[in-house]
Design a protein around this nucleic acid. Structure first.
Lengths: 388, 388
DNA sequence: GACTCTTGGAGAAACGTATCTTCAGACCGG
DNA sequence: CCGGTCTGAAGATACGTTTCTCCAAGAGTC
């Protein structure tokens, strides 16, 4: 009894309307499974005629290769993890922030464009979920110093790219905004608009974004000779922002301009200003960091700083996939991550040296809230039949 | 030469700092791989002493079981797909709608809570991505009639649960809102608030939500004897909504109340009303379907209908996992999906009969825009030092 | 003392693919 | 006519688990 006969025998006895496997295709086409595999994957040396015949048979049988078997054999799952480690314990509060939602969306899209799928996994999630999924690589958002998850992933050979310059954990590459530059830009912008005392609404957490931004503000104050005026609050608490905004405007040394580091701060500050009878921008200049376009429709519209989450998400994923595909293959000539490379792309260097980092520019969207003179109209309003 | 020696020999010769496998653990602990597997998975008949010893060795070696091998062997990947098939071709425009974002978030969270991870896959994405991923089941949002993807998934034995009552494709189960009831509720609400002619802002697409809602409106008009006043636009076009809102209020038979089916309609209608000098709610009552809380802060706050995407997402995933775990195991007594079951849960019945459906209630959040008398205050405003 | 249970654990067969190696024959130049 | 190259394809192995089957030895039991 040959091995083939044995196999097909086993196969037929245990037949219980299972999906067709590569063996069934081979049997039906009268070829070996090697030939089927080669024909379907465009490998091997086969005449086009055999290829198309096998393809046809496979189609007819409704053959779908087993992703699990392929993953086991090739060591590649086509799956990328996306995780966020900071910002409280709840699994998904984080996508409430428009930044994360946008970033995740762009990341998903970029991954799919390169043949990878993205799965969102909070760091706090059950360990069995993490270990039950074959990941080719992971994107980590804002890893804190000494993040154990990142360290373990890196140790086990999984490429890790972080959104946010990593504090002290080993990553394959990272992408971040130049937060110092962005804050200084805003402060200058507010100064030019006539601000004399600029306040800051910031967070209590120790992630890189909050820390760098606050430090940039304090440094600017020192340099310019202004006494810092700021209030902090736990950024993941949605109610605390309004209270902090109120506190900031209730101070005896009330600022005449405020920059809020977090998305809801614009609304919070606007409401607080109203309560105190402050007109925006006449009495108070306002800027906040946000990806939401509701600030184009508020009264008045509020100037926002965009961290360009779409660009970040796309770049992060492309860097990660570059690393994944670079692990065993050299430069494959595919589409690569773009951006201002700080270092040459040396992936997975076992030696010393910092991981390659990329800085993405931010964008200040200037609206009425930060200009004493109303901004030039760039878009004409729709026809106004009611007159006006 | 025994098989074990052969294996370990092969192992050691090809050793190139690979991850430790179950064989390495077995060798180090001086037991068989069967024992290791049983010890780590809590199966078999082993004394606690052996179990803990094996666990310890595994820990020491940093052993992580291969998810791919486990998936191949058990036939379960722990992965659930989430896909949307309607709403244009672009892969991810859909998460721009707060409904989908919320729903996806809740779904992800619910899946993780039960040990599954969720991967977002647009139906339009490259076929190789779909076939490269082992999915235990799929959630489909708003499947159109005769959706080929759903049909193929169902045929290949993958459980499919849909958000939105499926038109004509076979699903394991579905969850939806009672859209007719919701629309009728709103129309009654507006009538009670004094509306004489209620308009509708609706979409041009043929998905269930748009169709059912529009039909409910038309039926209501017929019953009440009001001439329908509505405008349609392609819902996935962000700019078209404002134009349609404008059109609706520019009509000679201008409505004195409007219900907008889509999230941005509230803002659009408010802006249009302003342009026409219409006061809300005095001259125009406004309701729109939205999950965004920006409508609590608009001037005036706008009454919204929530479709409870979090509840839907949670329920859909729970139903799906019930089906997945019910395929081979009977009632496992785990946490099950809740909700108003329309049919007893008969999963994967090959026979006739409709798939089990669940209707989730909607919630009307009444705000100033739909009441001629200002609503009772339910929350007192924060202290107002500025007076007022 | 021969017998059944029970306990603790080993062996080996899958799971379904990709790929490395081998091999038969065709073709070809000399 | 013969060694070499090239083409088309088959065989067998490995990927790393889980699990089914089976066995040895000790503990009761009559």
């Amino acid at each position: 009894m040959t091995a083939a006969a044995n196999q097909s025998g086993r196969r037929s006895t245990s037949r219980r309307l299972e999906r067709a496997g590569i063996r069934d295709v081979a049997a039906a086409a009268g070829v070996s499974i090697t030939t089927v595999s080669d024909a379907l994957n465009g490998k091997g040396r086969l005449p086009e005629e055999t290829r198309s015949r096998v393809r046809e048979v496979a189609e007819r049988l409704g053959y779908r290769p087993s992703a699990a078997a392929r993953t086991l054999r090739t060591g590649r799952s086509g799956l990328i993890g996306l995780t966020v480690t900071t910002y409280g314990e709840e699994p998904f509060t984080f996508t409430e922030f428009a930044y994360f939602a946008e970033m995740a969306r762009a990341a998903t899209s970029a991954a799919l464009g390169r043949g990878f799928a993205l799965v969102v996994l909070p760091a706090s999630s059950r360990h069995d979920v993490w270990s039950n999924i074959a990941l080719d690589g992971t994107v980590v958002i804002d890893p804190p110093d000494q993040d154990p998850l990142v360290t373990e992933l890196y140790r086990s050979g999984v490429p890790v790219v972080s959104d946010g310059k990593p504090g002290n954990c080993p990553v394959t590459a990272w992408v971040d905004n130049d937060h110092e530059a962005a804050v200084l830009d805003i402060l200058d912008h507010l100064s030019e608009a006539g601000a004399r005392r600029i306040g800051l609404l910031t967070g209590t957490s120790t992630d890189t974004y909050t820390r760098l931004s606050t430090e940039a503000y304090l440094g600017w104050c020192r340099r310019v000779g202004q006494e810092p005026v700021y209030e902090t609050y736990p950024a993941h608490d949605p109610a605390a922002g309004a209270v902090a905004a109120d506190r900031l405007l209730a101070r005896p040394d009330r600022p005449d301009a405020v920059y809020g580091l977090f998305d809801p701060n614009g609304t919070d500050l606007l409401a607080a200003a109203r309560r105190y009878g402050l007109r925006v921008p006449e009495d108070l200049l306002l800027v906040c960091c946000s990806e939401s376009d509701v600030y184009a429709g508020t009264e008045p519209p509020i100037t926002t700083l965009s961290l360009k989450p779409r660009k970040i998400g796309t770049t992060v994923v492309n860097l990660l996939i570059d690393a994944i595909e670079g692990v065993d293959a050299g430069s494959s000539g595919g589409q690569r991550a773009e951006g201002a490379r700080l270092f040459p792309p040396r992936f997975r260097t076992a030696g010393t040296g910092p991981p390659p980092g990329t800085l993405m520019p931010t964008e200040l969207i200037v609206r009425a809230s930060s200009q004493r003179r109303s901004p030039r109209r760039t878009v004409s309003p729709p026809r106004s039949p009611g007159g006006g």
